[in-house]
């Protein structure tokens, strides 16, 4: 439970939102070491910004090796599972597919550019089939794949929930048609920061597929929270974006698991 005394006074209204952050990382960074946070430090920062829970990846997955990074992620998040939902990395390789099928996680993150593979079906189709079969929420940052590759992924796997992170603020001419055509596409708000962009999205496309993202530890959550706080949208839409949408996706997956286990 968050203590009000740890929350920045400017964010008093945020405490009631039950924020679930879709975009956070932890662990050492070889390129941005000054900003990196370990798990307790990340939680202290979440407390200050009234973020109750976060999807958290490990920077060793992104910057070094998926297997080694996943091991660090599991070890370092173990004591904080009430606040941190581990986001494991995956590769289109047989041992990953076997592992994901045997013990499917709630969420994975793919780095096709950094880890040098294609998201097209001829290369990663088996992995993506597995992710879709288990309803695993799949995170990919916009800079990791081209628009056409994203379209193929959405078309080939229409039941795979894809959360596109860090879309940037200039992408609406791509995003609007994609969001209209592909109900399995979601985006986060960390870099969705053009003038009144959030409220325009809600007006045109609704609030159901926007997820609050901070981009901790690199960005301050104060920016994305202020954008959400000052958007002229219904309060229910604000709560959906702050955390309800992400919780709904997790709930859907938990129900599928339960049905499968009966």
């Amino acid at each position: 439970m968050l203590s009000r005394s740890t929350i920045d006074p400017a964010l008093s209204e945020v405490a009631a939102w039950d924020v679930f952050d879709a975009n956070a990382s932890m662990g050492r960074s070889g390129t941005r070491g000054e900003l990196a946070l370990d798990a307790p430090e990340l939680i202290a920062e979440m407390d200050r910004f009234a973020i109750r829970r976060a999807l958290v990846g490990h920077l060793a997955v992104e910057e070094y090796d998926v297997r080694a990074g996943n091991a660090l992620l599991i070890e370092q998040s173990q004591s904080y599972l009430d606040r941190l939902e581990p986001v494991v990395g995956a590769l289109p390789e047989p041992d990953f597919i076997q592992q994901l099928s045997g013990n499917p996680p709630s969420v994975v993150r793919l780095f096709p550019t950094k880890h040098n593979f294609s998201c097209e079906a001829w290369c990663a189709g088996e992995l993506e089939e597995c992710l879709q079969a288990h309803g695993i929420l799949t995170l990919i940052a916009r800079e990791e794949l081209g628009w056409d590759a994203l379209v193929s992924l959405l078309r080939n796997f229409p039941r795979l929930p894809i959360l596109l992170l860090e879309t940037g603020y200039r992408a609406d001419r791509w995003l609007y048609p994609l969001m209209r055509q592909h109900p399995n596409l979601y985006i986060d708000t960390a870099t969705y920061v053009a003038h009144r962009q959030l409220e325009n999205f809600v007006d045109r496309l609704g609030a159901d597929r926007l997820m609050f993202g901070s981009r901790l530890p690199f960005y301050t959550p104060g920016a994305a929270l202020a954008v959400l706080a000052t958007a002229r949208i219904p309060d229910e839409a604000r709560l959906l974006i702050a955390g309800k949408n992400l919780r709904r996706l997790f709930g859907a997956r938990a129900n599928r698991q339960e049905t499968r286990n009966k």
């Binding site: 920045d8 910004f49 920016a223 994305a224 202020a226 954008v227 000052t230």
Partner: peptide, 18 residues
């Protein structure tokens, strides 16, 4: 702020929570 390019609340949030 860079409005109406960027959302002014970004800078506002950065200052108020610094």
């Amino acid at each position: 702020s860079d409005m109406p390019y960027l959302e002014a609340a970004v800078s506002l949030g950065r200052v108020l929570t610094a």
